[in-house]
Amino acid sequence: MDTIAVLINGSEEAAASIEFGAREAALRHCALRLVAVWEVPASILGGGVAGQEVYDEFRETAESLMAEAVAKAAELAPDVPVETRVVKGQPGPAFIEESRDATLIVAARRRHPGIKELVMGSISKHIVSHAERPVVVIPLLGRGQSSRSEGSE
């Protein structure tokens, strides 16, 4: 069975990506692979070493995002098999690695608070540049215009 890999990189991003990925997976009879990548940012490490509790906190955040994502996928496409991977690493490269054998890769364009124009984050830029499979980038637009095709199927 073919697999559609979806990056879970934030609550809002994940929701948009899962909506697209779940619908495609149901239509194409594929499995869904949800991938959450976490790391402790360099700004927190500050050149030093963080305590175990800091690592645990970041990992737990990724795990709770993943739990939310699994529930959403089950709701949208109950018949689609879902596999989850929570991995530590740099989000772009780690996601590419985890989705190497997928037929389609889905990631949302992050919202950058304070910047009027929505600009593709460095993670999606990395994915677009390095993926060996087709990549779907989902734009996060304002409420009510994020999915023009909603209800059309």
Binding site: R109, K125, P134, V136, V137, I138, P139, Q145, R148, S149
Partner: peptide, 10 residues
């Protein structure tokens, strides 16, 4: 990918 109003497949 930066400016599309709809999902983009690359």
């Amino acid at each position: 990918a930066d400016h599309s109003k709809c999902p983009v497949v690359i």
